[in-house]
């Protein structure tokens, strides 16, 4: 039971990193300015690298090889939140998602650095450091674009409104929530969400974006359970296109 709970926790975190890392990498060559191409690529590399490290932890717990886990499962077997699988859309959406998600990730890995599962605590300390750059990048740009021109403010506001229900889906409780907390693996999604709301509110208060009326935002759940939007399976098909030519081959 304990181990099932731990694996479930690791899978959903790893899946989040892999899928958003993949989405971030889609900006390569298409960014609004070269500096942003480069920034999104750095974050993509960090995230995919983090997912790789987490799948390695799972491998040590008896799960399959990272490549098999990442490239051979179908959408229903992925436990990422739906927020990360949504298409990049315009830059405003990608930036808002990056802000909402990485604000949560920074807190999540901070909490995980206290995990009773030592290999996870050790890894979380390293990832926490990498995430500082991600949140710095997001905060800097949200502050600037959220106060710059009517168009930039309007675009961010619109994307924020669309992304928020999905962002709350990050915190969809796991069926093992109480066991995860009791074992000290992780402080739990409710705690994470509480801290996240404070951070999001504080940053938005430094922009001209509207303060969020949280009770009116309805969370979109399902991702943690393997229920996904129509966007995940095509992403996975693309990701594994070459790998599946011959999964036994070495590439």
């Amino acid at each position: 039971m304990k181990e099932v709970a731990l694996k479930e926790l690791l899978y959903k975190i790893a899946d989040d990193q892999l899928i958003l890392g993949h989405r971030n990498s889609e900006w390569t060559g298409f960014g609004p300015l070269l500096e942003e191409d480069i920034a999104f690529s750095s974050m993509a590399q960090d995230k995919v690298g983090q997912s790789y490290a987490l799948y390695q932890l799972l491998n040590q717990l008896g799960e399959q090889e990272p490549d098999t886990v990442a490239f051979m499962r179908n959408a229903q077997q992925f436990h990422n939140c739906q927020l990360v699988e949504l298409p990049n859309g315009e830059y405003d959406f990608s930036l808002i998602r990056h802000f909402l998600f990485d604000t949560a990730e920074a807190i999540r890995f901070d909490l995980l650095s206290q995990s009773s599962y030592q290999p996870l605590a050790d890894l979380a300390k390293k990832i926490k450091g990498e995430l500082q750059y991600h949140t710095l990048h997001a905060n800097t740009l949200i502050k600037k674009l959220g106060s710059a021109t009517p168009e930039s403010i309007g675009r961010l506001q619109n994307s924020l409104d669309i992304a928020l229900p999905y962002a709350l889906g990050i915190f969809e409780p796991s069926p093992f929530e109480s066991s995860i907390i009791a074992e000290g693996f992780f402080a739990g999604e409710a705690e994470l969400q509480k801290q996240w709301i404070l951070k999001v509110d504080a940053l938005l208060a430094q922009t001209q974006l509207k303060p969020i009326s949280w009770p009116t935002v309805k969370a979109i759940y399902g991702g943690r359970n393997g229920q996904h939007t129509e966007h995940l399976q095509p992403l996975l098909d693309e990701m594994s296109e070459v790998f599946k030519i011959d999964p036994t081959a070495e590439w």
Binding site: F30, P32, E90, K144, E151
Partner: peptide, 15 residues
């Protein structure tokens, strides 16, 4: 698609 970003970053409120 990126023009609005570049213009916004040039705006005085957002050096």
């Amino acid at each position: 698609r990126g023009r609005w970003v570049r213009e916004a970053l040039k705006a005085p409120q957002a050096a």
